[in-house]
Amino acid sequence: MTARVLWRKSLSAVMLSLTGVCAFVAVSVLFLILGYLVIHGGRSVNWDFFTKLPAPVGELGGGMANAILGSAKLLALASLIGVPLGLLGGVYLAEFGGHAAGFVVRYAADLLNGTPSIVIGIFAYALLVLPFKHFSTFSGAFALGIMMIPITLRSTEEFLRAVPLALREGALALGASKWRAILTVVLPAAYRGILTAVLLALARVAGETAPLLFTAFSNRFWSPGWNQPTASLPVMIYTYAVSPYDDWHRQAWAAGLLLLGLVLVINLLARVVLSRGAAVRRS
């Protein structure tokens, strides 16, 4: 009897430490990456990094101002494409979609969500680069926007479904049409959740490199308008990291640090938005 108890106790202790160690490893990976980025790239994050164009090959210094602006433009345009489509699609799914149509849309969105990003890149390349015979900000944003659609759509649907039926009925009973009820009551009730979803989608595509390689491509100079190839942080990291120059390596680390910092901030923002919303709902 005591032997069994001893066996059970030691097994429990072993499993507990095992799971604890795994959890620790999982968390420490993030901190390892962060630490690595800070050590290697921290020194390069300076005023020049944010304000200067890349230095010509062989020269020290220079910055990534064009890539930062390029990423911002790409993400902004991608949101303009992906968010409305995802949002309205989510509204359709949650409020109007019948059984069959709902199933098809939902399934398609889930498949799209699982589609490798490089495939989406090829699609954008075939659609918007080949016909015009040059890379462009627009084609890159298109690729990223497509990637945002399924996340936005499914989260919008989930958050809309979480809005109590009683709220919809309350609006309908006051003589609101269905569209009016959705626009003035249901969406406002769910907007924090939807905003969170949009932010998470944004964080997800902010680091995408593959689809940009053959859509937005890259650029060592400013990229005016939407119709020229543009630099972006992920692609710059890729280009600089595989280059033979130490200074570029350091700048690649710095760009990585910036990108990770951006994702962290967006995640944090999403968390704050959501928790505030929940607090109001509960009280």
């Binding site: 009683a166 009925e169 309350g170 009551v185």
Partner: peptide
């Protein structure tokens, strides 16, 4: 309705 359903406003 059965449960109070004020709008989030």
């Amino acid at each position: 309705f059965q449960k109070p359903n004020p709008f989030p406003k």
